[in-house]
Simulated scan of single mutants.
Amino acid sequence: MMRFAGKSVLVTGAGSGIGRATALAFAREGAGVVCADVAQGDVTAAMIEDMGGRAVACAMDAGEDADVARAIALAVDTFGEIDVVHANAGISGGIAGLFDTTAEDWSEILRVNLIGPFLAIRHAAPIMAAAGGGAIVCTASVAGLRSGAGGAAYSASKAGVINLVQTAAQQLSGSGVRVNAVCPGLVETGMTAMVYDHARQSGKEARIGRLNPLRRGGEPEEVAAVVLFLSSAEASYVNGQALAVDGGLSSSHPVTRQDYGRTAI
């Protein structure tokens, strides 16, 4: 399949994990890809070029207005247009509870995870609309759907992303620009490396993902496949939605309860 032949795509957070898997997948299907990240975006771009694809790297901070504008301009200058943006860059901020997170921590997590996708939409959507349309996919999380799948600040930021894509889809009415979110569950990436490493070192790898009906963690490529679907003409009537890719976890979100002032058991 070459669903993105001749298309121009920007992926933020392309240096590793879901972002890298998505950038590679877009390239395999013919897209020219801007691989944007604070680090390692050039490695992903080199991987694409090595497999015969078209890519350019862009060092950027997803939460900085000027950096996002520059990355989108690079896509237009390099490939002639901007057809798709995967606003994927994010940080976890750890698993601290509501009363263990500082205002500074909250500010930084919201800056990257929520302001970042806002900036991507703000700068890319007008260009797409002027060209007749496009697709923007933001990486949210099952943690944004309800409590129990992440730290307090991270969960709040991802809930904000889900509302952001709904709001953006409405405010872009008639433009031809679709805005959706993908909500990964537990996926092995740099962000979750500590979870996976601890499980393997303690002989509990089989327990990874045990709370979802598929009884396993996900792979970045499984999320990338959904991002490509939402970005493609196959999803031409999908707009303003948050699609969970979580093995069924969010169908119930089972979680250990934590009483105020006590440790979860």
Rank of each mutant, 00 (worst) to 15 (best):
G150N: 05
V226W: 11
P254Q: 06
A14G: 01
M2G: 05
C58F: 06
E219I: 01
A25E: 14
A242I: 09
I72Y: 04
R215M: 05
C138D: 07
A140C: 08
V226G: 06
V223L: 07
Q171L: 13
V76Y: 12
I208Q: 11
A36L: 12
M191Q: 15
A233Q: 06
A152Q: 06
V9F: 00
A14S: 00
T22K: 14
V182I: 09
L145N: 02
V84A: 01
G133K: 03
E234G: 12
T139D: 06
L74M: 15
A14I: 00
E104C: 08
A152L: 04
G80Y: 15
V43P: 05
F4G: 07
V238L: 10
V255Q: 08
I127F: 08
V165F: 03
E104M: 11
A168E: 01
V165L: 01
M2V: 06
A36N: 09
P117W: 06
M47V: 04
D197Q: 15
L228V: 05
K158S: 09
C58N: 07
V179Q: 03
G185S: 10
G176N: 13
A45Q: 11
G174M: 14
A199T: 09
L243C: 08
E234K: 09
R262T: 13
G134I: 12
A153H: 03
R207I: 07
H253V: 12
G52F: 15
G174C: 13
T263H: 06
G32A: 02
G41I: 03
G185Q: 13
F99P: 00
H198Y: 13
A36Q: 11
E221S: 03
T192N: 11
V223H: 13
I109G: 10
A120T: 14
T256N: 08
A193Y: 12
L186C: 10
L24D: 03
G17V: 13
S250Q: 09
G240W: 00
A206M: 07
T22D: 10
A193C: 07
A206D: 15
G151F: 00
A59P: 01
V177C: 11
V142N: 02
A225C: 06
E104Y: 11
H123W: 10
G53V: 14
G32N: 01
E234W: 05
L74P: 07
F118W: 15
T78L: 03
A69S: 02
K204Y: 04
E222R: 02
R20T: 01
A31Y: 06
F99Y: 10
D105I: 03
R257Y: 00
L172F: 03
R3V: 06
R216W: 04
A62V: 02
R257W: 01
A23L: 00
A130N: 03
Q166D: 02
F26N: 05
A206L: 05
A69H: 00
Y260V: 00
E104G: 07
L186P: 12
D65G: 04
A14K: 00
A233C: 05
G94Y: 15
S250M: 12
E221P: 00
L110E: 13
I162Y: 05
A66E: 15
V177F: 02
C35Y: 09
S173Y: 08
A21L: 07
G150Y: 06
G247Y: 13
G185R: 14
I72A: 00
A149K: 03
I109H: 04
G41V: 02
R111S: 13
N113G: 11
V85Y: 06
G133S: 04
C35S: 09
